[in-house]
Amino acid sequence: MSSATPLQEAGTGKKPVPRRLGAPAWARRVALPFGSFLLFLVLWQLLAASGTWSSTLVPPPADVWDAFVEVSTTHDGVRGYNGTYLVEHLGISLRRIAFGAGLGIATGVVFGLLMGTVGWMRSLFEPWITFLRTLPPLAYFSLLVIWLGINEEPKVTLLAVAAFPPVAVSTTTAVAAVPRGLVEAARALGASRWDVVKDVLVPSALPETLTGVRLAVGVAYSSLVAAELVNGLPGIGGMVKDAANYNNTPVVLVGIIAIGVSGLVIDGLLLRLERTVVPWRGRV
């Protein structure tokens, strides 16, 4: 077996043989999260078994698993939680997020394009959007309930208002940062104002807009429990709030984990969409 280095092999005309430097990348990507999850479970079990806090405050993982089984099946004649399975609670909340965040994202993209291209509109609306972005959802949810009642309207509106500012701000910034040379070149070639927006501004702003969409979905998720504080059952946030009223910590944790896992899945889908729509990002 030759002991020549790759540099020596290149000098003698031999093709260097690639050497493996450890486990494949995909194995590390799977092993590291799985290992951190196991470590988290071990620490959780040790903390619950230590007796520092009562099981009502820190239930062991086994109790949370039992609660997950109970809210996911018909147990002792009771269907899920409050007559609804966990997956149904989650599906109803996801539908609210889809409507609310979808409306907020669409409005944010339109306002971002307008504010990025029309100077007076940015001066007019940007302070209001910044004001709205700094407000916590609970600050105006009670007002929405007074205006819209306790049915679906205030929940969807809250999620839309929460999702709107990140998309509007990111789109505005991206459009304003488009090089003027590209716009002037398009106009010199006879492009109309709409053509400039469609063929120059939107493609250039798309990567930052998609980042704003991811942020908007995250903000909508963080506002979910607040949106379902009033008449939120069925719904995963309403389930968490109702269980907290009865100190049912295992069900609260089941709901939190369901929100977090579904959020990870949706964020992964948005990342895949971003790689598909703007494959050049990070390569140029």
Rank of each mutant, 00 (worst) to 15 (best):
S2A: 11
S2I: 11
L7T: 12
E9Y: 01
K15C: 05
P18H: 11
R20Y: 14
A23P: 09
P24I: 06
F37T: 07
F37W: 04
L41I: 14
L41N: 08
W44R: 11
A49R: 07
A49K: 14
A49F: 10
G51L: 13
W53V: 15
T56L: 08
P59C: 13
P60M: 00
P60W: 00
P61A: 09
A62V: 03
V64P: 02
D66A: 10
A67P: 04
F68D: 01
S72I: 07
T73S: 13
R79T: 15
E88V: 07
L94R: 01
F99A: 11
G100V: 05
G100Q: 00
G104H: 08
G104F: 08
I105N: 08
I105Y: 06
A106Y: 05
G108Y: 03
V110C: 07
G112N: 13
G116R: 15
S123P: 05
S123W: 11
S123A: 02
F125M: 15
E126H: 08
P127N: 07
P127Q: 14
W128H: 10
R133G: 02
P136S: 04
P136K: 11
I146K: 03
L148W: 02
E152P: 14
K155R: 01
V156K: 07
L158Y: 04
L159P: 12
V161T: 08
V161K: 11
A162L: 09
A163D: 12
F164E: 03
P165D: 13
P165E: 07
A168R: 07
S170M: 14
S170D: 11
T172I: 03
A176S: 15
V178W: 09
E184N: 13
A185E: 01
A188H: 10
L189S: 13
R193P: 12
R193E: 10
D195N: 13
V196E: 09
V196F: 03
D199V: 12
V202G: 07
P203S: 06
S204A: 13
S204L: 02
L206D: 08
T209N: 13
V217D: 10
V219Y: 03
V219T: 04
A220P: 13
L224F: 04
A226D: 03
A227Q: 11
E228P: 09
V230H: 00
G232F: 01
P234T: 12
G235H: 09
G235R: 04
G237R: 02
G238Y: 02
M239F: 02
V240P: 00
K241P: 01
K241A: 06
D242F: 00
D242I: 00
A244K: 13
N245K: 09
N247R: 10
N248A: 11
T249R: 05
L253Y: 05
L253F: 09
I256T: 05
S262H: 13
G263Q: 04
G263W: 10
V265L: 14
I266D: 01
G268R: 10
L270H: 06
P279D: 06
G282S: 03
V284Q: 06
